[in-house]
Design a protein around this nucleic acid. Structure first.
Lengths: 193, 193, 193, 193
DNA sequence: TATGAATGAGGGTTCATTCAT
DNA sequence: CATGAATGAACCCTCATTCAT
């Protein structure tokens, strides 16, 4: 029973991720999501409060999963430079393997009223904190310059990588995203020295 | 007469910029824009084809103005490093002085159907080309590393700066954006070496 | 279930017939039709594509029904003169019993862009062909004059009857339409001899 | 001055006739009529009360002119049969020479709320009375059958001719209307005997 | 739980009419 | 008299949400 409930919730979230990514929040009708999930329109409201709740949940589960993945991987890294490399590698690989999430990110992350955006940023912050931890440790280890403002640096890092991903998507994914890991990492690490 | 027409066009564009920035494209009702501009709903359609046309025009005028400003300023720069500094300075200063444009940028730039997005990218590309020119020249001058892929580097640069601006806006502009010019420039230039 | 769907489709068509007949296509607001049908505005769009689709469907069902009725009746007629009489009788009787259809006919039949008109003429042509068949057979049987141009004669016939109906409606139906069957038939048959 | 006023009134009426005929009442925007007439939108309201007033006036002037023409011609006819022939000839010839009026007739004559239609029928009645006079005289002369109900016969006559004109227009005027005078007249006269 | 038919508020756009110049 | 910019009411259609089954 509980199992069934999770299955259906999942089906809806999967469907929503796809439809949101393809059409954006406004272009994603509930009926489209329902059809994609193989349930009735009304059923969706048994699992979610409203359309916004679906989007929020999609973000939460997605980002939680990604953050967990990154956390695990960072434990294996030996030094700050390797950690930066790992972050970029994990991010690019993950996006190349989960294109819907990548699209959702650029299509939706920036288009909402401040209110909703704050709700969403709640789920990005663990990811951001991971980056900041790496930067902080790198600073303490002497790998990065001592006057580095960690939060600001995190924004520069994330912004740069995010833009690379966006451009790749907008181009229609005509080239490999992971092939850009090395050159991107070089830029980032040098910038932090 | 002609003067009056320009005035009204301008009033509508100003209003539209504000309302689009505050509510996004979908949340911006024509009636809201009209009220803000101090005209009747129908009047807007004497100056613009439709809602999309307003957004497009806002982008065009806005970005054209900014690009012109940047072009002029870049002529005065002596070397590649100074040019990078100038780009960041002009961008941050402009955004701090034109908050609506800044908001519009993060709220709208990425949320539209591909068709409209291509229309818009038409107006961002001159700006991007300016950055690329600087990078190319810097490469040739030996200021940046020789294996730099110009387009990719432009994305890294723009993404990093863009994210700094976004974060500043999302924070509610609680700190000064221009105060971040130096630290941002340092990151960018080092990354390019 | 299916039953219910048909009922609602029918209710909307009935309402539409009435409202179209009273106000014409342009004067017939969807909300008026919805109210008359006892449904919400949006419900109409669950059964029809758009306003035009409603009108088209009204015509189709209406004219199909009438043509069927006439076809059946014509099978029983013995000669050409009787057939002409039957056509007039069926037409006048039908219109007297279905006033809305009569009104719709004169209010709407001729007022639309060519495109829509062609769509509609699709449903009138079976009726016209029935008349033409009668005329052709009458010609062959020697009941009508041999140099009769069938299509032209059909227009004369239909026009004459149609005008009688129109005048009757415009008069406010102050007299009986069916009482004019004999005199009308006499005119038509003599004209064809 | 007075002359000028008439000129402009005329220009507007000519333009309105054309635009109404081409697009129907609802499809005929005031701005279209104004442009066609070579005046400003507002100017139209110096000469007419509103859009409906323009249509009404177009009908009045048009039909008055035609009725006058017919009156003159009927004076020359020697007998009832010749008069019927004359009516058909004048009507078909006039319509072939004034296509806009012909179109206006079928596009508009039947599409209006009863109120407006009665206003218009005011201007058609002189024409109808002319036909009725011919029929009455023919009855008295013994040219037509004695039990002929004049009004009813007029409707049959007019309806038949009107339909021939309509079909001709709808066909795109691919054949000559006047070539149908003889066959039409034959039908009408025989029907009246 | 699940369904999907029904709801009805909301919004972009048109265009007859007005009025300041 | 003439202009045409401005007005704003009106209307078709969409779609998130509800609720009877």
């Amino acid at each position: 029973m509980a199992r069934k409930k999770i299955d259906k919730t999942d089906a809806i979230l999967q469907a929503a991720l796809k439809v949101f990514a393809e059409h954006g929040f406004n272009g994603a009708q509930i009926s489209k999501i329902a059809k994609e999930a193989g349930v009735a329109d009304g059923t969706i409201y048994l699992y979610f409060q409203n359309k916004e709740d679906i989007l929020t949940t999609v973000y939460r589960t997605t980002l939680t999963g990604f953050t967990q993945l990154l956390t695990d991987r960072l434990k294996e890294t030996l030094n700050a430079d390797a950690a930066i490399h790992a972050i970029c590698e994990i991010l690019f690989t993950f996006m190349e393997e989960n294109v819907h999430i990548a699209y959702l990110n650029i299509v939706e992350l920036r288009q909402h009223p401040m209110e909703l955006r704050k709700e969403i940023s709640q789920y990005t912050s663990p990811f951001f904190r991971l980056i900041e931890d790496v930067l902080q440790k790198g600073k303490e280890e002497g790998a990065f310059r001592p006057n580095l403002e960690v939060k600001h640096a995190r924004r520069l890092l994330f912004g740069a990588m995010d833009q690379v991903i966006s451009s790749w998507l907008i181009s229609g994914r005509k080239y490999s995203l992971t092939s850009l890991i090395e050159s991107t990492t070089e830029f980032l690490i040098k910038g932090l020295k």
